[in-house]
């Protein structure tokens, strides 16, 4: 299972998401899954997304995901980070 944390308007994708806690979806891990494929299953396109963190690392959509991973996805309007301050992991 992959734990997908959704923020901002993406929370609407989680039914009964607790507002003052975390909006987390447990998703099945399929062979060859990447951040992009998980996003695809949630109908989230790259253009909709500001930042993605895989296990707290600022990550490219191409990164493979594995069972037990924590994936956090923020919508485009939340692109408030100092972009240059984080190393982006793509492996």
């Amino acid at each position: 299972m992959i734990n997908v944390y959704l923020y901002g308007k993406f929370r609407e994708k989680v039914p009964d998401c607790s507002v003052d806690g975390e909006c987390m979806l447990e998703m099945e891990n399929r062979e060859g899954d990447t951040i992009a494929s998980i996003m695809g299953r949630l109908s989230i396109t790259p253009e909709d997304v500001a930042h993605v963190f895989l296990n707290h690392q600022y990550s490219a959509f191409t990164r493979p995901v594995r069972s037990g991973d924590r994936l956090a996805i923020f919508p485009i309007e939340m692109s408030v980070l100092y972009r240059q301050y984080f190393p982006k992991h793509d492996e």
């Binding site: 923020y7 930042h51 939340m78 408030v80 980070l81």
Partner: peptide
């Protein structure tokens, strides 16, 4: 405070 969750996810 939009930044709370973002910085938290960024560690």
């Amino acid at each position: 405070a939009v930044l709370v969750n973002i910085l938290n996810e960024a560690g």
